[in-house]
Simulated scan of single mutants.
Amino acid sequence: MTIKISTERAEHINAITLLTEAAFQNEEHSSHTEQFIVNALRDSGQLTISLVAVDGASIVGHVAVSPVTISSGDTGWYGLGPISVSPERQGQGIGSQLMKAALKELQHLGTTGCVVLGNPAYYGRFGFKAHPGLILPGVPQEYFQATSFGSKIPCGDVKFHEAFNATE
C-alpha cells in the first residue's frame, strides 16, 4: 500500500462526497451531513485545505480544514474536519497521514492554531487537548480540543462557518 497525499482537484469532488458519506454512515456521534458540510465549505470558498489520500487510482481518505472565529478576537485559527477514511481502509494509518499533512500545511501557511471536535484519545496523538477557556458551545469540553503553533491558546467561544449547518 502506497498512499499519496495530495491537494483536492476538481475531478476528486464526487469521490470525496461518496467517501465522506460512507465513512460517517455508521458513526454514532455523527449528523450524517458531513459530505454536505465539505461541499458547502467548498462552495462558500471556506475550504482552506482539502487533502485526499490516494491509493493507486482510488481516493481512500479526505480531510477538510476551514477557518473558525473566536469570540476573543484571536485570529489565524482553523478547524480540522471532517476527516474521512474509507470504511474498509480504517485502522491502516491513512487518517494519521492526513492529520499530519493537514497540520503541516497549516503551519506552512503561518496559521496560529487548529481546533477539532472528536475523540480525545485519537486527536491527542497529534498534540490536541482540551483547554478550559476555549469552548465550542453545546459540546462536552473534553471532546473539543486545540493545538497551537507557537502562540498561546485563546479563551473564548469558537464558531465554525455556517457551512457546518448544511443538510443537503
Rank of each mutant, 00 (worst) to 15 (best):
I5K: 03
R9L: 15
S31H: 11
H32Y: 09
H32I: 04
H32A: 02
Q35E: 06
I37Q: 09
V38R: 04
R42S: 02
R42V: 05
T48S: 13
T48P: 01
S50N: 09
V54A: 11
D55W: 08
A57T: 13
A57N: 13
G61W: 15
I70G: 00
S71D: 08
G73Y: 08
D74K: 00
D74S: 00
W77F: 11
L80I: 06
L80V: 07
P82R: 14
P82M: 10
S84H: 06
V85G: 05
Q90I: 05
G93H: 12
I94Q: 03
K100Q: 10
K104A: 15
E105A: 11
H108E: 04
H108M: 01
T112L: 10
G113R: 12
V116M: 14
P120S: 02
Y123K: 02
Y123C: 01
A130R: 03
H131G: 00
H131R: 01
H131F: 13
V139C: 07
F144H: 03
Q145T: 07
S148Y: 06
S148W: 00
I153K: 00
G156H: 06
F160T: 02
H161W: 12
E162F: 08
F164T: 15
F164V: 15
F164S: 10
N165D: 05
T167W: 11
